[in-house]
Each structure stands twice: as structure tokens, then as C-alpha cells.
Design a binder for these strands. Sequence first.
DNA 1: AGGTGGCGTTCAGGTGGCTGTCAGGTTCAC
DNA 2: GTGAACCTGACAGCCACCTGAACGCCACCT
Lengths: 219, 219
Amino acid sequence: MRILLIEDDPGLGSAVRDEIAAEGHVPDLAPTLAYARDLVATMSYDLILLDLGLPDGRGLDFLKALRAKGSVTPVMILTAHDRITERIEGLNAGADDYIVKPFDLAELTARINAVARRYSGNPNPLISLGGLEIDLAAHAIHGPDGQIDLSQREWIIFEALLQRPGQIVSKSQIEDQLYSFDAEVESNTIEVYVSRLRKKLGKDVVHTIRGLGYRLGTP
Amino acid sequence: MRILLIEDDPGLGSAVRDEIAAEGHVPDLAPTLAYARDLVATMSYDLILLDLGLPDGRGLDFLKALRAKGSVTPVMILTAHDRITERIEGLNAGADDYIVKPFDLAELTARINAVARRYSGNPNPLISLGGLEIDLAAHAIHGPDGQIDLSQREWIIFEALLQRPGQIVSKSQIEDQLYSFDAEVESNTIEVYVSRLRKKLGKDVVHTIRGLGYRLGTP
DNA sequence: AGGTGGCGTTCAGGTGGCTGTCAGGTTCAC
DNA sequence: GTGAACCTGACAGCCACCTGAACGCCACCT
């Protein structure tokens, strides 16, 4: 997914861009509104992340101009904690969602995915996978023998794979999803969870690539 | 990606610009240095392709001025086959890479992608190679018959080649990637791995240059 | 308040994929 | 023609991973 990040803070900009890229999206970073205008004139984006305070103008004015031109690209605004009026104004100007600084990068990812799902014509995706019907938003799985329930941790791991079909997700990436920053996991917890997912959902739902990680099975 | 092509030959200029655009980049073509200066004053480019012989001046002087101003935009110079001194001077003046005329457009694309990866901070490129779609960060390869998995060591060797398209990578360089410093490999391990890559990905994915090493196959 | 069962984590024994090697054959520079 | 470089199928051993079972915790139910 093509994502344009309009953010002048170099540190935040880099961190967010790297996170978006790590999630498999294709990010562009514009530190100014002028550059952002050039980009949206020539590129087609699936989502825009918009900071409201830019060095060469107001993010809000950029957003209004975008909507005035008829663009329906989803826009998520980045706002400071105490800027409530600004937030409301942004939503009124046509933003689809907002996230409050400072934010956790994992939360940003989840929010991005949520906005993208809402606006890609697939707001509540059912995913078909090898005889399973999966409803991510409702955490519901329907298999050939009926409803299948996963525990919270099992869902976290399964979603980590579902969000990256075709990609290898390393054990350390899964650990990062499950535990707080830098927590050391001492045993083969991940393997046991994967085994349980296989038991509940079928042995082909997760493929192991030895030494690298796991990958979602092919539908 | 925004690419500025500084080339006075109309035929070559058009062909390269069209190829760059077809690859999803956003090219600008400047047939003179004066025009190029105007463009770089107002636009931010991700890469500059620079011919050294222009009607209104030397490409080398343009490059030196660019670096003197503090620009770190990657620059790839286009040089004639026999202009070795010019090539060296270009690299010394701050060029990041060079490509020798006449060149294959597919090789140019691969080289552009490689330079952009080194300098753009975007570690998650999709690479197309002979019917394969390769996602380096996610260790994902999609071939004509579906998903292809490589082992950890196979990836290391494949990446060593992917990161140097068009270049010969020696066996000792590959050994350095695989093993710790100064480890002596006693047998034909590298040849066996290359054979396995060919088996999984196709026999043209790696070319052997006898006595020198291996090179990535052409897309 | 006490009992229960689901969940998270750990462990141990087993397994099969990966790694490195080798041998026989092919290719090619000289 | 020759010898070095390379190719590739096959094999053995290692260890990353699998999975059944167990235990402690705690939310929930009675």
C-alpha cells in the first residue's frame, strides 16, 4: 500500500517511515507541504498521514484543498495531545481519523490497517484461507466443522501472519507483538503457540522456514 | 521515486525517461545543465542520472557544485566505455555509481533500484527479476508457480548478489557473508548453494564468471 | 469462599530440514 | 589434449523446531 507521510520532524518522520516500510507498505516522506503537493500531483496514494504543523503552511489548509479537488484518499491526521480544537477542525475538514502524539508505532500500524480496510472497499474483511473464513474485526473464524475460537495470544500471532501474506515473519517479530519492548522470552513459547494454531486451524495454515521464521499458508 | 535525468541526446533521453516511468518512478529530463540547475533548485530528487558531456558545460562541474552545496542526493554518472579517466574523476567528484554506455535499460533499472536502496533509507524494496518478485526485507519470493522459500544460507548468498546487480561477486566475498572472519571453507560449499538457488529460482538467476565469481542474472 | 478450567509458560523426547561434504561428471581456458 | 574450475546428486550429522504433557495462575462460576 502506498502511504504518504507529511511530517517535518526528522526523527519522527524516519521512525514512522521505517515502521510503515517494515509493515510491507511503500512510504514516501514529505517534510514540507510544497513537496507533498508535488507528490500527490504525480503519485496515487492509498493513505496520507498528515501532521498539522508544517514549516510552509497549515496541514489543515492542505487537507481542505485536497478535498476541494475531489480527492477521496483517506487521511489520518497526527495531532498533539492537547490540541482538541485542531483535531475537531481536522475531522471537519475531511480527515478520516486521527492519532495522538506521542503514539506507539504498533498502534499506528493497527490504525493504518483499520483505515485502509475501511476505505479500500473492504471495511470488514472476510479472509478466505484454506477452507477457513476469517473475520479480523470480529475475531471470528469459521471452519468446516463450525466456529473456531482462538485465545488472545493465538490471535496476535495469527494476525501477525495474516497482515503479511507471503512474507516471512521472524520469531523475534512475533515476540515483539506479544511482549513489551526488549522482553526476553526464555523458552519455545512461540513454537508452542504455532503448534496450537495448527491444531485448531489445520497444519497447513502456518509454514515454517527454518532459521528465518513463519509464513502464512497459501489459500 | 523522483529521478532527474540530465542527458542531451534526444533518443537516449527519451528511452531512459520512458523506461524509468514504466518502472513507476517519476522522471524529469534536462537536456542542458542550465535547466538541470533550475530543476534541482526547486525540486527534491531521489536520484540524479548525469551525463558528463552536455552542450553548455561539463557534467563533472555540475556534480562538484552539487556536492559543494552539501547535497547528498545519489548521483549515477553515464559514461562512455573508453572514458576511464572521466569515470574515475566522476567517482572522485562524488558520484555514487556509474553505468557505461551503451547500456541495457533493464540493467539501468536494476542499478537505479540498487543505488536508491543504499541511499533512500527504504529497506523494503520489491525487486523484479526474470519473472520473480522478491521482497528482501520479508524474505519473500513469488515465482510463476507461487511462493518460493529459501533457507537462511540461500538467502544470504542471494542477497549478496541482489545488492550488487551487474557486478561480479567473488566466492570469497560470498564466504565472508556466510562465515565469520577468516573462516576457511574447505570444499565447494558455495557452488552447491548456487546450484540450489538455480534449482529453486531458475537456472538463469545466477551467472557464473569462471575464475572470478558470480553475478545476478538479468531481469 | 471454594472449586474449576482456560491460558500462558515450560520442558522433554523425537523428528526432519538444513548444512557441509564428497564424488563423479562437465565445461572451458590455455 | 589437459587440468582447473565448476556443477549437481546423494549422503550423514546436527540442531531448530514440533508437540504432548504438565504446572501454576487467575478469571469465572456456583
